[in-house]
């Protein structure tokens, strides 16, 4: 453990721990939404610290689409075992039955059914009243106004005009019948903070974040990895092996890679500091319109 963290990181860590503790203090059934990405890894690390020497008083929930990278599933199962956390995996039964996938149904429909609807099903089924998420305000413009404690209506919708003001660090976590709260302990972290923290704390992350030779194809300006034999090639399309890595991870047919030779966290940080494109640039689902993210979140997307 490296104790000489930059001061701003220590301030962010203390703030996140405060948020975790405050949220569970008045919650009946909290849960941590675990997405296997780097932010989730940091979120879990902070949860473990917030409740030490005990265990975090909540399970992990992974809303699965069956289309994540193979390496992500392996990482997830290993991690839950290592930290002895309860892991709930939810797959939308409608999607399983109808074989919903990004190739036949498109990225928007695929994401809405598997992730948005799947999440709502899981939260309602288990009656979770507080759900921790790893979203950061610097990810996208409409997130910049999301609260740390974000109240959702019984239908899980988000109304940006009806948000509770958040004063000082006094959070109003009172809930009316059927309401729930999404809590974002990483609200004030940036992508660079996340990587610096991962480096200092030596946090394990999915190997896909590091560059390696991988089979990929070019599609609509994105580099897509061929992760299994469900991949649908276009006529004349052939995978080629290139040195790539991912800045964000999701469903493999929807996650754009970047060409990179960064094989260590310090390489990644250097690449970020001199880089010229944003993290979400590699996400297919953000390209559905200028304010697409805001609309998704009004529906209940995380």
């Amino acid at each position: 453990m490296n104790k000489s963290k930059p001061r701003h990181l220590q301030q962010l860590v203390d703030e996140s721990i405060f948020i975790f503790r405050e949220a569970v203090s008045e919650a009946e059934r909290p849960v941590l939404l675990y997405s296997i990405g780097k932010d989730s890894s940091v979120l879990l690390n902070l949860a473990l610290k917030a409740f030490a020497p005990g265990k975090p008083p909540f399970p992990l929930l992974h809303v699965d689409t069956t289309w994540k990278f193979k390496a992500m599933y392996a990482f997830r199962d290993d991690l839950a075992k290592r930290y002895e956390m309860d892991l709930i995996v939810h797959q939308n039964p409608y999607c399983l039955e109808n074989n919903i996938n990004p190739f036949d149904h498109g990225s928007a429909r695929h994401t809405e059914l598997w992730k948005t609807d799947g999440l709502i099903q899981a939260l309602q089924q288990h009656k979770f009243d507080v759900a921790f998420g790893g979203a950061r305000r610097d990810e996208e413009r409409s997130r910049a106004k999301e609260r740390v404690f974000s109240v959702r209506s019984p239908s899980q919708g988000w109304d940006p005009k009806q948000q509770r003001p958040e004063l000082w660090n006094t959070y109003n976590n009172k809930l009316a019948q059927g309401q729930s709260i999404r809590v974002f302990p990483l609200s004030n972290w940036t992508e660079l903070d996340i990587w610096q923290y991962i480096a200092i704390e030596e946090i394990d992350i999915v190997p896909l974040y590091f560059a390696a030779p991988r089979p990929v194809v070019d599609r609509d300006g994105l580099i897509i990895m061929v992760d299994d034999d469900r991949f649908r090639f276009l006529p004349d399309e052939k995978p080629e092996i290139r040195s790539v890595r991912f800045r964000t991870l999701g469903c493999y047919p929807l996650s754009g890679a970047i060409e990179s030779n960064a094989t260590s966290i310090n390489d990644i940080i250097r690449e970020l500091e001199t880089g010229t494109t944003s993290e979400r640039q590699g996400r297919v689902i953000d390209k559905d319109g200028i304010a697409s993210m805001e609309r998704k979140r009004q529906r209940g997307y995380f």
């Binding site: 910049a144 106004k145 940036t190 200028i290 805001e294």
Partner: peptide, 20 residues
């Protein structure tokens, strides 16, 4: 940030930005 604000040309809510 919010769509309504871009169209009306005013800032309605509190927006947080980060830089270093």
């Amino acid at each position: 940030g919010l769509e309504a604000e871009r169209e009306q040309g005013i800032t309605i809510d509190v927006a947080y930005r980060y830089f270093s």
